[in-house]
Design a protein around this nucleic acid. Structure first.
Lengths: 156, 156
DNA sequence: GCCGCATGGTTTTATGATGCAACCACACAA
DNA sequence: TTGTGTGGTTGCATCATAAAACCATGCGGC
């Protein structure tokens, strides 16, 4: 099978999320959806991708529970694509990607927008990794542990 | 040109980071690198991807300044691939992806590992978005602002 | 009631990327 | 010098991607 090596059965959560989010376009579609776009044509105009690709990506995102199709809303007989909670949950990922660019991009002057706190107009703080008790953690302060065996509720 | 739509000139920082990080394999290579893998063969064994693909991905990551080639280290005449600071800076992105899976995956019981605080062995806290003054922000509390005009240092 | 146009897709087709397998190059050991 | 392990590159079949053409539906004008 040459098929782009699906990670569906993979036990790594990173691989699993990448499997669901798919590719570049999916990220950008989600980005636009977070900004309020909902219609096929809106996505197409904003992103400038081919309609067939958009069609496939939207379907994939719907299949993965990231978007849902809503019947209408403005009376037209067409569908809208709205984010599910799972879809909205990707926000930190996009913020992390954005902040990484802002910090490390070779040509930061080409970055057009900054994410700010709506109330104050000031940039949001860098995402930080913290322990349960609030201690700031660096990568070296963390490790992977096997997931504890699932405590099955109906096993007596 | 069919060429997989490069986002190189794009002004969106999310597109820019995706351009650099490339694809699934790149993420997974970085994941392994964060765990200490450095040698071609190590990556190949762990990830099980074709050597030519690995070769291309490693080169791309080096080109983007995420990995650097180090001359040796264990005496062998070959290279090692080590993360640059820019590469280590991707850690929050991977954590965000991981946490998204942990929270929303349809089959969370298939996830094999959890990321824990090394000191306490407890799971790390969910990444939070905060304002400069520490207020917790939801997506709706944020907005995009055009980047302020770059104050060019040498313009008189 | 039919023309034209906008929206929302699907089909067609070419090219490019992917991945398996085979091959090459080098170091080192027997 | 032959063998073995590491670190790749090359060849080639196949799949996915994307541009463009095409189809279908709704709607306003007339």
């Amino acid at each position: 099978m040459v098929k782009r090596t699906s990670f569906e059965g993979d036990s790594c959560p990173i691989a699993r999320s990448l499997e669901a989010l798919g590719d570049w376009w999916s990220f950008l579609i989600i980005r636009e959806a977070l900004f309020g776009l909902r219609r096929f044509g809106e996505f197409q105009n904003k992103l400038g991708l081919a309609k067939n690709i958009l069609s496939v990506r939207l379907r994939s995102l719907v299949d993965h529970g990231i978007l849902a199709t809503a019947p209408a809303s403005d009376g037209s007989a067409y569908q809208e694509y709205v984010l599910t909670p799972k879809g909205r949950g990707t926000f930190p990922i996009l913020v992390a990607l954005r902040q990484w660019s802002e910090e490390f991009d070779d040509a930061p002057e080409e970055i057009a927008t900054i994410l700010v706190d709506r109330a104050k107009g000031r940039p949001v703080k860098k995402l930080e990794m913290r322990a349960e008790d609030g201690r700031l953690l660096s990568p070296a302060d963390t490790m992977l542990k096997p997931r504890p065996a699932p405590r099955r509720r109906s096993a007596h």
